[in-house]
Computed example of a mutant assay.
Amino acid sequence: MTEIRTPLRRRPAQRRSAERVQRMLDACAGILDEDGYDGLTTTKIAQRADVAIGSVYQFFPDKRAVAQALALRNFEQFGDRVAERLAAGAFADWSDSVGAIIEVFVDMHRTVPGFRVLRFGDVADTNLLDAAADNNSVVAEGLRELVVRTFALADTPALARALAVAVEAGDAILKMAFRRNPDGDPAIIAEAERLIHGYLADHIVEA
């Protein structure tokens, strides 16, 4: 999916440093689940990751930057999982991928630490993934690249616009599903798939 610049002050040069950064992100995820974004602090991150506070500031200027790095990790993991599902080739046509993409998102919401609070960053900043575009636009662009490549679709402005609308609609409906049930209301999730599939069916044309 779309490559985005890292929020790290500097990239870890050694494996040990890279592992320390990942521990900080894991700590951030755990704190988000327990205390929410408002309860997140760099001190808590350092304590939970078992690193000195100076180590946190060596890589991140503040808690927002840590959350940004975690949101980017979520985005990359989402893209990798979707790409893996699409590459499996178990779809009769493009429309089957709508349900698969939603399933990936729902599974991450249920199983990935911190994802249910942070997702792709809106709780901290609607432009957390990329300063030049809102988070949903970044997700839509990444999905456009994957779908066009996998299903040989015509890559047109109309397609980009349709996917942007679909992501916005899906985001709103899935938020509703998880407000009603911490694990996601199955009936609402099914409605999200039905609505998005029906909408995109009128816009996506195979090349």
Rank of each mutant, 00 (worst) to 15 (best):
F60M: 11
P61L: 12
R64P: 06
R64Q: 15
R64I: 11
R64E: 15
A65W: 11
V66M: 11
V66K: 07
V66N: 02
A69E: 13
A71C: 09
L72W: 00
R73Q: 11
N74P: 10
G79I: 03
V82L: 01
A83L: 01
A83W: 00
A83E: 09
A87D: 05
A88E: 04
G89T: 09
G89E: 09
G89W: 09
G89C: 04
F91S: 01
A92S: 13
A92E: 15
D93H: 14
S95Y: 00
S95P: 02
S95H: 01
S97W: 01
V98K: 07
V98P: 04
G99L: 07
I102V: 14
I102E: 08
E103L: 03
E103Y: 03
E103F: 03
V104R: 04
F105S: 07
M108H: 07
M108P: 08
H109T: 10
H109M: 15
T111P: 11
V112E: 14
V112P: 04
F115L: 10
F115N: 08
R116H: 14
R116E: 11
L118N: 07
F120Q: 09
G121I: 02
G121Q: 11
D122Q: 10
V123T: 10
A124I: 10
L128Q: 12
D130R: 02
A131T: 15
A132M: 06
A132F: 08
A133D: 06
A133G: 08
D134M: 06
D134Q: 14
N136M: 10
V139Q: 00
A140F: 08
L143D: 01
E145D: 15
V147C: 05
V147R: 02
V147G: 03
R149L: 07
R149D: 13
R149N: 13
A152D: 15
T156N: 13
T156P: 10
P157G: 09
